[in-house]
Computed example of a mutant assay.
Amino acid sequence: MRITLASGTRTDLLAVSAVVAALRGAGHEVRVIGPQVDQRSVGPELAAVLVAPHVTWEPDEDAARIRALAVEDLESAPPEVALVAGCSGVVTALANAAQRRGIGVVQLEAGIRSFDATSSAEANRRALTSLATMHLAPTSTAASSLAVEGVSPDRVRVVGNARVDVLVASRVARVPLVDRRGTLFAARTARTADRDRLDDLVRLLPWLAGAAGPVTLLLHARTKAWLEQAGLYEGVAALLGVRIAHSLPYDAVLRAVAASELLVTDAGELQEEASFFGVPTVVLRSSTSRTESVNAGISALTGLAPGDVLEAVARLGDRRERARIDGLPCLYGDGRTAGRVVEVLSESDVRRRLVPGGELASK
C-alpha cells in the first residue's frame, strides 16, 4: 500500500516513527511529511528510531507555506491512503486535500477531546474526525467520544498511543518511589504573549518550592525569551529551591519526569509520560485532552489559583496516593501501537473502505 503519513509537530513525528518502521517492515511504501527534527534534541536511543521526512520544514517557517507544501506533495504523488498524526493545521489541510481527491484518510489519535471550544487544536481534531475514513483511537475513552459524535463503531479501532512505543524505545526506566525527589515544572506558556499568565506562573514558583521542592523548572527557549523580555528571568533564576533546566533533549526530559515525585505542567504536556512512569501531575489549566489521567486521579486540573494548586500538590503528593498512582498501568498504551496499526491496515474490510473498488499496490 502506498501511504503518505503527515505529522505537523516534532513531538508527533517522533511518536509515529515506530509506526513508520512497522509499516515499512510489513511491505508498505510510506512517504513522510513532517518538520525537521535535530537528532540531538531527542537523545541517542531515540535518534536511532527517528524517521527522516521526505518533505520537511524548519520550525519557524510560515504556517501557510507549510500547509501548501504538504498539500502540493500529496497532489503531485497521490498515495492510496493518507495517515495523519496529531491535530496541527498542516495535518488538517492534508486530510482535507486527500478527501477531496477520494483518498482514504486514517486518523491516529482519533477521538482525543479537551472539550475546550476556544482551542484551535480541538477544532482541528473535530475537523479530522469529519474527514477520516478510519479512526484509530488511543484509548477506549477516545473511542467513546467518537461514538457519542456518531462515528460508526466499525470505523473505529483502539490501538493505543504511539507515544508509548517511543517511551518503551527510550529505555528510560521507572524510578522506585523512594528514590524520587522534588517537582518537575514544565513551563511552555509563553508560546503566546500572555503577560498576565506569565506573571501568575512566576508567582507560583516560590509556593511550589516551599510545598513540594526542590523544583526543577524545565524552561522552553521561547518561554525563557518571554521571561527575559518581561524582565522576570533574573528574579526566577534567583529563587531559592528552584533550579532552571534549559531546553533538555527529550531523553533527558524523560529521565527528569521519572525521577520526580510530582510533575507540574502549564500546557498539559508530558501527561502520557507521567502515566508511563507513575508520576502524579498538576495541570495549570481548566481543560486537558488527556482526560484519562484526570478520570483516574493521576492528574488534577487546577488553573493558576495558588490555593487550588497547593491543594492538588498536597493531595497528589500524599505518600499513599503516590503509591496508588505508581501501581497503575500506563493509561495510554503498552508500547505495541505500531504493530496494531499494521494489523488494522491488513484487515480486508478496512482496505475496502480505504480504497473502494480499487486495487492496492501491495500489502
Rank of each mutant, 00 (worst) to 15 (best):
A48D: 14
A48S: 13
A48H: 11
A48M: 07
V49D: 07
L50T: 01
L50P: 06
V51D: 04
V51W: 01
V51K: 03
V51T: 15
V51A: 12
V51H: 03
A52T: 15
A52Y: 09
A52C: 11
P53G: 10
P53L: 06
P53T: 06
P53F: 05
H54V: 14
H54P: 01
H54T: 13
H54R: 14
H54Y: 04
H54C: 10
V55F: 06
V55P: 00
T56M: 06
T56K: 08
T56G: 06
T56A: 14
W57C: 05
W57A: 06
W57G: 04
W57Q: 11
W57F: 14
E58K: 11
E58L: 13
E58R: 14
E58V: 07
P59L: 01
P59D: 07
P59K: 05
P59A: 09
D60M: 08
D60G: 11
D60K: 12
E61I: 06
D62A: 12
D62R: 13
D62T: 06
A63C: 07
A63F: 08
A63D: 11
A63R: 15
A63I: 13
A63E: 14
A64Q: 13
A64T: 10
A64D: 13
A64G: 12
A64S: 13
A64P: 08
A64F: 10
R65A: 11
R65L: 08
I66D: 01
I66M: 03
I66H: 02
I66K: 09
I66P: 03
I66W: 03
R67F: 02
R67N: 08
R67L: 05
R67W: 04
R67T: 05
A68M: 10
A68T: 11
A68G: 15
L69P: 06
L69D: 05
L69K: 14
L69I: 03
A70T: 08
A70W: 01
A70I: 02
A70V: 13
V71K: 00
V71W: 02
V71I: 08
V71N: 06
V71Q: 02
E72A: 13
E72Q: 10
E72D: 12
E72K: 03
E72V: 00
E72I: 00
E72C: 00
D73K: 01
D73E: 11
D73S: 14
D73N: 07
L74E: 00
L74S: 00
L74A: 02
L74T: 06
L74W: 01
L74Y: 00
L74P: 01
L74V: 03
L74H: 04
L74F: 02
E75R: 10
E75G: 00
S76G: 04
S76N: 10
S76K: 08
A77W: 07
A77Y: 03
